[in-house]
Amino acid sequence: MSLLQDAKNWVRSRSIHVAYVDVGSCNGCDIEILACLAPRYDIEQYGIYVHNNPREADILLVVGAMTPPWVERLPALWAKIPAPKAAIAIGNCPVSGCVYNRRETYILGPVAKYIPIAAEVPGCPPRPTEILSAVLAVAPTVFRDYEVNRS
């Protein structure tokens, strides 16, 4: 059993499926996530695959300042992700609203009010290396010994 568990842990830590959701960003952070996919940073070499289907995902990257239409939809989307799962806030916007968090704007942040956030990557936008290291840092703590910790 422990051998099977070891094998599961090994596979889980090396095959991370990521979905990303834009809850109202300026596309700056989206471009940095895109740069992660490109050959320069190449997240696939670490076993991270990007989907846009939450049912296939392990990690949800939340990008952007929380806008009113997402208040209902983001928890619904989070519920669709099968456990074990984790959410990472990319950039300042999900953390604080960044420059949009001013009077006369519709920012209902932080995102951590709506779904549990495992890690926050500050920056406007964060560098691809920072996004990459956050995903790699969160993955083992969330996915290792998942069955053992649950029971």
Binding site: N92, V95, S96, C98, N101, P122, G123, C124
Partner: peptide, 27 residues
Amino acid sequence: CPAPGAIEVLQEGGTWHPVIHRGHCLR
């Protein structure tokens, strides 16, 4: 500073110094 809440100037132990808040700072 263009970002709300990114920098504060605080007095600590008799000396003043700016404090940068990550998650707000744009760099």
